[in-house]
């Protein structure tokens, strides 16, 4: 091709490109790409898509330089715009996904912290309970030891049995407590109050075999009740103690001798451990 021909072609092309106004689609494409390229999130999350948008814009620019404002240039510019938008939308979606994941992580962390706090509280409560229990057991043991000084104490399957002589507590044939019984029963009450908070108590009244069985049963019941009332009045919780009269049943000694009958006239207090 001769030099003259080249000059002629350039003379035709250059004024053509400069004279025409830049198509709207290309302006929009440039602006869209600039926006996407300036967006830190797009640069970070979707670099490949941003690069694709850049290549599309370059194709549109080249088309404009070569052909001017043609449908092809406008199509290429339109595609470049969409590619830039795509990069930004995908970056936004990635941000949202990350936000959701962070919220989920945060929630999981909070739940874990709450669980740990609950576990710590439970452990602390358990330790306190164990301490209280140990203290109660220690006090109960001391109470039983104290009781052993004023009454007969023995351990049976039904619990710890404290036996008080009937003659110390009551006058013959009566169910009112003697003044001399007060001191001893006060010590018993203190021991029961100090016992395990879960323990329950049963006051059982017994007589010897003198008199009718019906009378003896009624008397033993009245005596057991009198002891129970005294103990309740001195701090033993009423709901934890009951009284029953068993009359002349279950003698612990012979009723043929005065000594044996004295042993049979008795009040037993059973300390039942927590179930």
């Amino acid at each position: 091709m001769s030099q003259r021909s080249l000059i002629l072609i350039a003379a035709l092309l250059v004024p053509n490109a400069c004279a025409k106004q830049i198509p709207q689609e290309l302006r929009v494409a440039r602006a869209s790409y600039e926006r996407a390229a300036a967006d830190p999130s797009t640069r970070q999350e979707t670099p490949a898509e941003l690069d694709e948008a850049r290549r599309s814009l370059t194709r549109a620019e080249r088309s404009y330089v070569v052909e001017g404002d043609t449908p092809k240039t406008r199509d290429r510019a339109y595609i470049a715009t969409r590619k830039a938008e795509l990069a930004m939308v995908m970056a936004r979606a990635a941000d949202q996904v990350e936000a959701a994941r962070n919220a989920e992580l945060w929630r999981a962390r909070e739940a874990l912290a709450a669980e740990q706090a609950e576990n710590a509280a439970n452990a602390s409560r358990l330790a306190t309970e164990q301490e209280l229990r140990a203290e109660a057991e220690r006090r109960a043991a001391m109470a039983i030891t104290a009781l052993a000084e004023i009454a007969a104490v023995r351990n049976e399957a039904r619990g710890t049995v404290v036996t008080l002589s009937g003659s110390v507590l009551f006058a013959s044939g009566k169910s009112e407590l003697l003044p001399s019984a007060t001191s001893r029963l006060t010590q018993v009450a203190e021991a029961l109050v100090a016992a395990d908070p879960g323990a329950t108590f049963v006051v059982e009244g017994y007589t010897d075999s003198k008199g009718s069985a019906a009378f003896n049963e009624k008397l033993s019941e009245a005596r057991a009740q009198a002891v129970r009332d005294f103990l309740v009045a001195h701090g033993v919780p009423a709901e934890r103690i009951e009284a029953r009269g068993l009359g002349e049943s279950q003698p612990v000694a012979t009723n043929a001798t005065a000594e044996g009958r004295a042993n049979n006239r008795r009040v037993e207090i059973i300390i039942q451990p927590p179930r």
Binding site: V89, M90, R92, A93, Q96, V97, A99, A100, A103
Partner: peptide, 19 residues
């Protein structure tokens, strides 16, 4: 991409609300 962004936004809002 817009559908996916919409879904992601909704999931993020839901996660934030649940939190």
């Amino acid at each position: 991409a817009l559908v996916r962004a919409h879904e992601a936004r909704r999931a993020a809002q839901q996660a934030a609300t649940q939190g």
